[in-house]
Amino acid sequence: MKARTRFHIAVFLAPAVLVYTAVMIVPLFDTLRLSFYRGGPEGAEFAGIANFRTLFGDPRWSASFWNALGNNFWFFLIHMAVQNPVGIALAAILSHPRLRFAALYRSAIFIPTILSFVIVGFAWKLILSPIWGIAPGILDAVGLKAFFAPWLGKEHYALTTLALVSVWQFVGIPMMLIYAALLSIPEEVLEAGEIDGLTGWAAFRKIKLPLILPSIGIISILTFVGNFNAFDLIYTAQGALAGPNFSTDILGTFLYRTFFGFQLQLGDPYMGSAIASAMFFIILAGVCLYLFGIQTRMRRYQF
């Protein structure tokens, strides 16, 4: 008996595939293609790996690139070390059955996530402003004025400050995902643990944490991709030159300056594409590492 050709699958897939191909896949491959070209007198000409050789071989380009990549890793580390643990803690507290006003807290913590980067960047710039900001005033009120510094203007603090602002903005996302995972843990499992004497912290560590590990994994990879694609917050707070002295320059701002140009510097789409390709491969490598190295080894439980 001949299997019927299932045309309807193709028909239903078509809109999504077409749109996704047009706006994501084609531009992605075109960017990769563009990174092997350079501008010549008659438009683009093939240049082989010359752009990548410049990016990694030229002392100035490579210094900028490694600086941006290093900053990006620091940006990511702060998110992993602060955003995700805090998100998990908040979710654990919120899922406590006797907590009052849980819905209010949940919304309040999640709201910054839906704000525009421009608003967040600008609001925090004002809060931290040494001239008009409320940060110096608040610190003064509790006698800690000596600890205030113009953080966004100091090379050593600016990137960490911005990373923490970004954490503030996005802590709602791990909180929501973990919260959902925690709610899906069946009562029976917890009750069984309780009979065996596991309550409070021990119950969280020995029962809930293993069960939400897959969610934590997903959150980590989302954070990784989000951080290595980040651009907006740095751009709105520090501008395209990512000052002071490029201390907040991440791959996104480096790409922007190169691709679109800045002030008197004309844009170079070919070098820009090379940077974009490097970003793509870094993210690809990170995601692969996670998928094949961690995801496959993670133990899953079914109820």
Binding site: R60, G243, P244, N245, Q263, D268
Partner: peptide, 24 residues
């Protein structure tokens, strides 16, 4: 003078800010 890479005008921005900040 700002036709090439690194761009002298942009570099001057960073250099001037660094000098005033005392970091260079």
């Amino acid at each position: 003078l700002s036709r090439g890479t690194p761009n002298l005008e942009n570099e001057t921005w960073t250099a001037s800010a660094n000098v005033i900040n005392g970091t260079e």
